[in-house]
Design a protein around this nucleic acid. Structure first.
Length: 270
DNA sequence: CCGCCGCCCTGCTTGC
DNA sequence: TGCAAGCAGGGCGGCG
């Protein structure tokens, strides 16, 4: 499941490989995965466009085109963006492909077909619903405290809410809560200021550490070269039901919270 | 504005 | 061992 660190790794990979290339042709095998504004034909619109930059907002990849239009990619759970060389065979579930004039291509593959590549107009406000970037200077402990005040929502559900903080998914919500020694079901408003500060720091720390290790490959995630990340070997709780907690040795449990699998330590997360 | 629910899909796990 | 059923899950639209 690509979350912020995985998308950041992909974005860095794309920035180093496809910026400056020109789209000769788009191949769309599954039309629902390549979305364009009304009255705009996706394939026709992207033909001839040059890739100006690649960046990230939350879990979304932003491919800026010469015209000012952007391709916004959402990978959801199983989406992949892979750069392939001239003549390389199609990869599994390669549903949308941007063929460049130099013969290489960007493949957008997704076994579950939930991912989307959306063309947006220049200046279109497509990300108004997204909250603060957790690795930006805007994400201060004070702002986080304000975000939580008065809310009865379980803290883990709030961490997953993209309207508040953009980019955190199930893996890093679980890991950050373990790092801050906070029980996932705690109502947000019940957290003390020191606890909120611990969680703020744990969240930033785990995201940064994962980026440094090129993300977590537990299921489908690979980078633009098809290589796995390294953070799956550094996980403390996610997917580790039954194994011993690194702090206290008691078994990590899996429960369900807000319709999501939740891994945590009953002993040292209070 | 906010929270909740259902939907989209298919690979994988579970259970008989 | 083989097969069918059921689960998982991010984002979004609809609803109250």
């Amino acid at each position: 499941m690509p979350e912020l660190p995985e998308v950041e790794t992909i974005v860095r990979g794309l920035a180093g490989t496809i910026v400056g290339k020109t789209i000769e042709k788009a191949a769309v095998a599954l039309p629902k995965m390549a979305v364009a504004p009304r009255r705009v034909n996706f394939k026709r619109a992207v033909r001839g466009e040059r890739i100006v930059s690649v960046s990230r907002r939350g879990k979304f990849t932003i491919i800026e085109l010469g015209s000012g239009r952007c391709l916004i990619v959402s990978l959801r759970m199983t989406g992949r963006l892979i750069v392939l060389g001239r003549g390389q065979a199609a990869i599994p579930y390669e549903h949308v492909s941007l063929h460049f004039t130099d013969g290489s291509r960007l493949a957008f593959a997704d076994s579950r077909q939930f991912g989307r590549m959306r063309l947006v107009e220049r200046g279109e406000l497509w990300d108004a619903h997204l909250g603060v970037e957790p690795l930006s200077g805007d994400f201060t402990p004070e702002r986080f405290i304000g975000m939580l005040s008065g809310r009865t929502t379980p803290i883990k559900a709030l961490l997953l809410d993209q309207r508040r903080i953009a980019g955190v998914g199930n893996i890093y919500a679980c890991e950050a809560l373990w790092g801050a020694r906070i029980r996932p079901g705690t109502p947000a408003k019940a957290l003390t200021k020191p606890a909120i500060r611990r969680l703020h720091d744990a969240l930033v720390e785990v995201l940064q550490r994962s980026i440094a290790m090129r993300g977590t490959s537990v299921d489908d995630y690979v980078d633009v070269r098809g290589l796995q990340g390294g953070f799956q070997n550094a996980l403390s709780v996610y997917g580790r039901a039954g194994s011993g907690c690194e702090r206290c040795g008691r078994a990590i449990v899996r429960t369900v919270l807000a319709q999501r699998g939740t891994w945590w330590c009953r002993t040292c997360q209070r």
